[in-house]
């Protein structure tokens, strides 16, 4: 480990060529994330939230500057090393769930473990634990098409946490859910953050998500406009 932070970005810059122009998606972003944070990247569309999430998730590399995730410099990773980092240490939750439609709930959650060469018995045990965390242990044989949006996202969360990653990146995880399901999902993620010590980083503009955050980083035009620690505003005024 090069430092004690889970994630650290130094003068992170990401630009994209657009015809004769260059779009600056991230402009000298300096951020540090500690273990077990529950942090949101907020800001308007085009502010660089997803780009930052991409780089932290080793899906993309910076144009300049550095992003160190769990001691590994993202910009220096080969495709295989980046895959290994995601495979072992990072979980993803998407806005549109992205479950594999032909597989059952159990098989969807089991899939990341198949890539990690766990034995069948270990996979079964870990999968059932993950489904139990999200309250879907009784829906193991259901197919994604038989689930509601909230249930699908809970399966996606179980898939992200089943390998007990240090970091979960969630891109607009509640965008396709109604208020009740959003709260349910967020409570589930908050509980996993608390019980497992998993770091959650969200990209969102959803106020419901923001209410749960303990740290809110506001991005504007690719730069950090504000970085604030906050007390979560639980629904009904409950404080953490």
């Amino acid at each position: 480990m090069e430092n004690s932070y889970l994630i650290e970005t130094r003068d992170l810059v990401k630009t994209y060529p657009m015809g004769e122009h260059t779009i600056v998606a991230l402009d000298k972003v300096n951020l540090k994330f500690e273990k077990a944070e529950f942090t949101g990247l907020v800001g308007p569309s085009g502010s660089g939230k997803t780009t930052l999430l991409n780089i932290i998730g080793s899906l993309d590399s910076p144009t300049s500057g550095s992003a160190v995730v769990m001691g590994r410099k993202v910009e220096g990773l080969s495709h295989k090393q980046a895959s290994a980092l995601r495979n072992h240490h990072i979980g993803f939750i998407f806005q549109t769930f992205n479950l594999l439609p032909v597989y059952t709930v159990f098989e969807n959650v089991e899939f990341p473990l198949l890539l990690l060469d766990y034995s069948a018995a270990e996979r079964r045990k870990m999968t059932m634990v993950a489904l139990d965390w999200v309250g879907l242990a009784d829906r193991t044989r259901s197919k994604p098409a038989q689930l509601s949006g909230g249930q699908s996202q809970r399966v996606a969360i179980a898939r992200a946490v089943v390998k007990k990653p240090a970091l979960i990146l969630a891109d607009e995880p509640t965008a396709n859910l109604d208020a009740e399901n959003s709260h349910h999902i967020l409570q589930t993620m908050e509980r996993l953050n608390r019980d497992l010590g998993t770091t959650f980083v969200f990209a969102t503009h959803d106020e419901k998500v923001i209410d749960y955050l303990r740290r809110k980083i506001t991005l504007f035009d690719g730069a950090v406009a504000k970085d604030e620690r906050m007390e979560p505003q639980r629904p009904g005024g409950e404080k953490r």
Partner: peptide
């Protein structure tokens, strides 16, 4: 396309 994208995101290598 979606399934393969998810698998890449989950850390499966392109060769795999």
């Amino acid at each position: 396309y979606g399934e393969i994208g998810v698998r890449l995101a989950l850390g499966e290598t392109k060769t795999h």
